[in-house]
Design a protein around this nucleic acid. Sequence first.
DNA 1: AATTTGACGAAGC
DNA 2: GGCTTCGCCAAAT
Length: 112
Amino acid sequence: MQPFTKRVIEIIKAIPEGNVMTYGQIAAQAGSPRGARQVVRILHSLSAVHSLPWHRVVNAKGEIALQEEEARFMQSFYLNNEGVETDEAGRVNLERYRYIDTEQASDPDALQ
DNA sequence: AATTTGACGAAGC
DNA sequence: GGCTTCGCCAAAT
């Protein structure tokens, strides 16, 4: 298990209820700004084992990245249940729900 | 050891 | 706005 992988797991576990993070964000925070696809692989294979809040992870556009209709529905359901609104296309308002780690973001307003 | 694979992202058209 | 191309890199084959 690479340190990067471990970091990703920790970060995902740290996403608070009612917030979401993007793959790129997680990868960057884990120390690999271009490692979005590793995050994908990690979620794909480890979400169940680590009981991660995988449903709080969306792609850069704020949309649910899953492909299977059934799983997409499940994710939007979980998000709605936490207070995150999703539209018909399974998209969330990133400006509103994106989680910014306060330890790393000295000026959240400047990150947008 | 070498190659393929992705629930991605940014850039270009 | 959509679609294609390319880069990315750990993990699975």
